[in-house]
């Protein structure tokens, strides 16, 4: 009885912990991370996800084996002109407020890819956060790769 329950708890913990386990020790929860696939020769792509911090922090950078350069970017439409910029000082996160990095807004830019990132791959991504005291900590996730051609999803927050 006891064993079964323990096992069950373990199973649940593993299930829920798949993406968030490393975050438990830290203060930012990362949900549903994904990386956009590339074709060979395409030198950059982006990672998207939902971030929820326990305390006010900033997403200031990251590391991944698939790209030597990782930057935190914002996409803005100026009229019908698209502009992409690195966010100065990182992306601020308020305590308890989920911020979604998604097409049409923020993304983690993966630059100078030596080879294509393909569907079926899980991209290890270590995000760097900086707290109010200027102390940094890391959260590691695995982001599955989604096809370049996006399916018919509700394009919420797409400026409509």
């Amino acid at each position: 009885m006891l064993t079964i329950q323990t096992r069950r708890c373990l199973g649940l913990a593993l299930m829920f912990g798949a993406f968030t386990l490393p975050a438990w020790a830290q203060t930012v929860k990362v949900d549903g991370p994904w990386v956009q696939a590339t074709v060979a020769g395409q030198k950059a792509t982006a990672a998207f996800m939902k971030l929820t911090a326990d305390a006010p922090v900033r997403l200031t950078g990251g590391k991944t084996p698939v790209a030597p350069v990782v930057e935190i970017h914002e996409m803005v439409m100026d009229g019908d002109v698209m502009k992409m910029r690195a966010i100065e000082g990182g992306l601020p996160l308020e305590a308890g407020k989920t911020v979604e990095l998604k097409p049409g807004g923020y993304h983690v830019m993966l630059i100078d890819l030596p080879k294509a990132v393909e569907v079926g791959q899980n991209v290890p991504l270590t995000l760097t956060f900086t707290d109010a005291q200027g102390k940094t900590f890391e959260v590691a996730v695995e982001a599955p790769v989604r096809p370049l051609k996006r399916g018919h999803e509700k394009k919420s927050g797409h400026g409509m």
Binding site: Q36, Q42, K43, A44, T45, A46, H73, M75, M77, M82, M84, P103, G104, H107, M109, L148, K149, R150, H152, K155, H158
Partner: peptide, 17 residues
């Protein structure tokens, strides 16, 4: 442009749709 991670895939996916 191809290094565009956001609006270009969005626009081309919309065209496919």
């Amino acid at each position: 442009f191809l290094q565009c991670p956001d609006v270009c895939p969005t626009a081309l996916s919309r065209a496919v749709e």
